[in-house]
Design a protein around this nucleic acid. Sequence first.
DNA 1: CACCTTCACTTGACAGCGTTAAGTGAATCC
DNA 2: GGATTCACTTAACGCTGTCAAGTGAAGGTG
Lengths: 217, 217
Amino acid sequence: MTTSAIRTASLARRERQKAETRQAILDAARELFVSDGVEATTMRAIAAKIGYTPTAIYHHFRDKDALIVELCMADFSSLGQAMYKIGRIEDPVERLRRMGMAYTDFALDNTSQYRFMFMTSLKHPILDAEGKVVTSPDEDAYGFLLQTVTEGIEKGVYRPELSDAPELAQMVWGGIHGIISLWFTHCDDPHIVFRDPRETVRTMCDAMIRGSLRNSA
Amino acid sequence: MTTSAIRTASLARRERQKAETRQAILDAARELFVSDGVEATTMRAIAAKIGYTPTAIYHHFRDKDALIVELCMADFSSLGQAMYKIGRIEDPVERLRRMGMAYTDFALDNTSQYRFMFMTSLKHPILDAEGKVVTSPDEDAYGFLLQTVTEGIEKGVYRPELSDAPELAQMVWGGIHGIISLWFTHCDDPHIVFRDPRETVRTMCDAMIRGSLRNSA
DNA sequence: CACCTTCACTTGACAGCGTTAAGTGAATCC
DNA sequence: GGATTCACTTAACGCTGTCAAGTGAAGGTG
């Protein structure tokens, strides 16, 4: 074994060890984050869970936001996968409907992640290791949505006045997001009897799509 | 002047003075709250603005949430007034549409208040002086919405499968809320070109209502 | 082998937050 | 004139995210 080979081997081990602690931080953070939510998850608690001091975390993540963003990004890949499957549906209208329901399922199954990614304003844009702005999975999902409504517009299935793809996409996304987020923040409100958000979303999708189609069936 | 008259007079003065400080706290808090948002508004900053110590505030308000809830309640009366005017519109469908737009205008004109009341989970239910749960103006507005969709259902203007008033109300409320809240949290996102939320809401209301009517025009 | 460097991690703090128990002093009451 | 009330202050508590400086083991190099 040459000296350079030894160097690279030990370097590799060091990096592997660092990656292991990094992963340990992520695992501990995920557990707390999912069970307690963002704000109740403290750097001190994460550190204690893996037997480090809080400051150790800062050698692996810029700040708390960066740590949690990384957590969420990993979970969001499952949304991406669901969207990918749905992408094979030919009819852009049926695809849109299915995307809406998949999005809803994801939100209700990953409440902490959803709350953080879509109901919080981040301090910093998401950056990768080289400092470039990252295209996160939720933006992939948005691109997917945009493409789906664009296809519908191009096929002429929507009413002529609904020709703006971003507006249409934001209408659908916003609408679904609203039912979900209102439910998250207000489902304990004693004054309001909340309906199952999944059913309300379904009703909304049906109504919104029916009202957007050219030949309103 | 009898002794009891003196007593009530001085009592009244004391109470008036206390009410004045209370109002001063509210005024200072509103200014900071509107310009900086909830989280950036600290008890210490409010107190400094009126020349008191932070603890003084706790003689007038249970905690920070209670103070801000009271602020918001006052501002929400303008939404209530707008709703009241709209209530005179005969056609429940047109009324619904107008309510949606009034709600949107209110949200975009009172962003801090809206964010706090609808995008935050409160720790405690809102209580009045006697400790009873308060019916806040936003719940009045919800009741208004509920009544409007109920009227539409009773008049038979909506499709027969849309017979659940709470679901319909939550669909409309949630839909509008989603566009607004998504815009609040993500309008600075470099990946997404956001359309004017007012226009997106209008498009959504048109589509949702058209898709909900029995004789889809 | 001995010295030097690297760097993951710790120590000990800082400034800020919401909140509270105890104290003060002026106004009020009897 | 002494007792009482109470709006407000003082001084702290425990918590947060975060950082500058230090430590010590591992690895590199003469």
